[in-house]
Simulated scan of single mutants.
Amino acid sequence: MSSFNRRLLVLSGLGALAACGFAPAYGPGGAGAALMGQVEVDAPDTRAGYLLTREIETRLGRASNPRFALGYEIMLDAQAIAISRSNVTSRFNLLGQVTYALRDIETGAVLTAGDVRNFTGYSTTGSTVAVQAAERDAEARLMTILADQVLTRLLAEAPAAPE
């Protein structure tokens, strides 16, 4: 395919996106503008809660005069997925679920709510310190993934939120 044909294909694809009402989430008038610096995340009480809050505030900014409050509940479960012949677990999956609700602070009305689920894995074949580091790293990766999923859902629902 020639260079000209590829450019034409890309431009026609961009035209189709513009025609369907596509707008960047964080662009002017995008769904992210209604949430940027406007969401107060509940104070964390666990390491996982801190990691989730940090990821969300990194993307949306810390609210100084919030219009919305984001409440969440985190559930984590480690499951053995690889067991040796000598009955020693050598790998775990860390399963996570975040149930969240975005509320209007002024009215207390729930604007959107839902839950997201995902998992990460880690190995237990190293030293005690290495296994603890792998477990903490898996938890941090999982909270990043879950924060991304929560934000994707919030951005998808943001147009319904009052501006």
Rank of each mutant, 00 (worst) to 15 (best):
A130L: 11
T89A: 12
Y122P: 04
I145L: 14
L94W: 11
M75I: 02
P66I: 13
G96K: 09
A34N: 08
L94H: 12
V116N: 10
I56Y: 03
F68G: 05
T89G: 06
I81M: 09
G121S: 15
D115S: 15
T125Y: 10
R67W: 04
E55D: 12
T112D: 05
Q149F: 08
T112M: 06
D45W: 14
Q149Y: 09
Y50E: 07
Q79I: 14
F68P: 04
R54I: 00
D42Y: 11
G108Q: 04
D77A: 13
A48W: 01
V131F: 07
V88E: 13
T58V: 02
R85S: 14
L142F: 03
M36T: 15
T99S: 14
L146E: 02
S86V: 14
T89S: 07
E57Q: 12
A133T: 07
E73F: 01
A82N: 11
R85G: 15
P66A: 07
D148H: 11
G114K: 13
L94T: 14
T58Q: 10
L70V: 03
M36G: 03
G126E: 11
L95T: 01
A69W: 05
D42E: 14
G71A: 13
I145P: 00
D77W: 03
V88L: 11
A82T: 14
G71T: 09
A130G: 08
L142D: 12
Q97R: 15
S84A: 10
D77F: 04
I145T: 12
S84M: 03
T53N: 07
E57L: 09
L94V: 12
V150M: 01
A109S: 10
I74A: 08
E106F: 03
Y72R: 00
L154I: 04
